[in-house]
Design a protein around this nucleic acid. Structure first.
Lengths: 259, 259
DNA sequence: CGAATACTTGAAATAAATCAAATAAGGTGG
DNA sequence: CCACCTTATTTGATTTATTTCAAGTATTCG
């Protein structure tokens, strides 16, 4: 989802060299590592951003650890009992809903700082699979204690409500895209959306590597993979972008937005 | 959205005969009426359902009044400052997002007990217009005091989180519908969804009156009004439903679900 | 390195949109 | 309460954007 070269500069979660702490006991086989919000480069992007420095330890008591999810592995599956939310520390994930009839549909892509699992609170079980697009790290946010802390800390509560509301908003926008836009508009909107989110995170936003396949993009946008490919090619022919496999360079964001 | 004959039996909000209380002063010209959760027939469906009887007065202190929205009028407009959520007491509403370029898109229909405005919490302003499909009544839930109360009352907090999460889930399902389903499947899913929601509310669920136009249904489903009409006609020809203008009778819900 | 997966491109098929026109329903003022 | 005007709905004929089918090429990662 982001350029590996860029990522190296911003990497905060995956242990590099001798920096990785020793794993602590993990349930279900996944190794878990102690989480330290203080000093995490994503602190301004995640739920911790709502807290004053002196309140951070309270959150760290709840978000006690993080874990790895390797490329292709699932963080959770549809039907699993809901227990935790997950905030991406590094890497990226997709969520996939399995429509009746074996048909699958990608409902979202998640970048560092974004939280997965919000749709599971209401029913007590996850409604989709969350799968890593690349080796990724996620902070584990056990929901019950998080909810408790939200009753004690007003700023945390407010931030959490905004997170939920923004997820509603994100999906509203996706619904508009899926119901009213041409395939060209969908692909253009997708590229701009990815670019904006990368920029917010401090990554290169005009030149990046897509971590998902054409098929996954198409599923997310409600079009076929061939249509994604053809549209990329057309945009390139028109000088709006450069396509080199999964690597995309945006030349004319204005023109893309105007499609 | 529901059959007027049925509605009469379940009407709890709109004053009938001499039952309507005197209006209290309303801001912005809309007349407001004191809200009484106790004795409201929708109490089991709305956010009040999470509270014990002795806690109800606390909620009533927050949800102090309700107001009418006449057919075609807006409850709020995109860009208005977010201040309150609204729970439908009677009637029905649609939410409409105005896509760049004058294009409009219906993002939801709301029945009694359902809450409008959840997408506005994150940005502090409404992201869409909410428009009454018929003369309707809504309880006004000022958000700041509601959020405060959620810190004090755990069951209320938990219910509110579930409301938000279920809205995320609803939109996920709509995204799947919009991206992967044929027009027949969309229309069938729509009819089943309306039927189920009417049933949950105690209304007739196999024989009801749609309060929205074919164009509004089409907008919601991402298809053209002619396609909605043709699909209704086809379903009728196949003996699955009976269509009489806005009045719909479902003969074979199983078969509809299997499309 | 090399099998498996992912991507591109062309040609034919198709579901739904668009254009068009007739009919029906609903609300308003006289 | 009715007549009329507007709005909503149905249905048909044609067009079109996107899918489907197909085949060759390029990547990727184990």
């Amino acid at each position: 989802m982001y350029d590996a070269v860029e990522a190296a500069n911003l990497e905060t979660a995956v242990g590099i060299g001798g920096m990785q702490p020793a794993p602590i006991s993990g349930s279900g086989g996944a190794r878990q590592f102690p989480a330290r919000c203080n000093g995490c480069g994503l602190r301004k992007l995640c739920i911790a951003s709502s807290l004053d420095p002196e309140e951070l330890p309270q959150l760290e008591a709840v978000v006690s650890h993080w874990r790895m999810v390797h490329r292709g592995e699932s963080l959770f599956r549809a039907g699993d009992r809901f227990q935790s939310l997950y905030t991406v520390r590094s890497g990226s994930l997709k969520t996939v809903a399995s429509h009746a009839g074996g048909h699958e549909h990608v409902t979202g892509f998640f970048l560092p700082g974004e939280t997965v699992g919000l749709g599971a609170i209401g029913e007590g079980e996850y409604d989709c699979d969350a799968i890593a697009l690349e080796d990724s790290a996620v902070c584990v946010l056990p929901f019950a204690p998080l909810e408790s802390l939200c009753r004690d800390v007003k700023s945390l509560q407010q931030h959490f409500h905004k997170m939920l509301s923004r997820e509603i908003l994100r999906e509203s926008k996706q619904m508009i895209l899926l119901s009213g836009m041409t395939s060209e508009q969908r692909v253009a909107a997708f590229l701009i959306n990815v670019s904006n989110r990368l920029q917010e995170r401090g990554y290169a936003s005009r030149d990046f590597t897509l971590r998902m396949t054409r098929e996954e993009i198409g599923s997310y946008l409600g079009i076929k993979l061939e249509t994604v490919s053809r549209t990329f090619s057309r945009f390139q022919r028109e000088g709006l972008i450069r396509v080199d496999g999964k690597r995309i360079e945006l030349f004319d964001i204005e023109a893309l937005a105007a499609i």
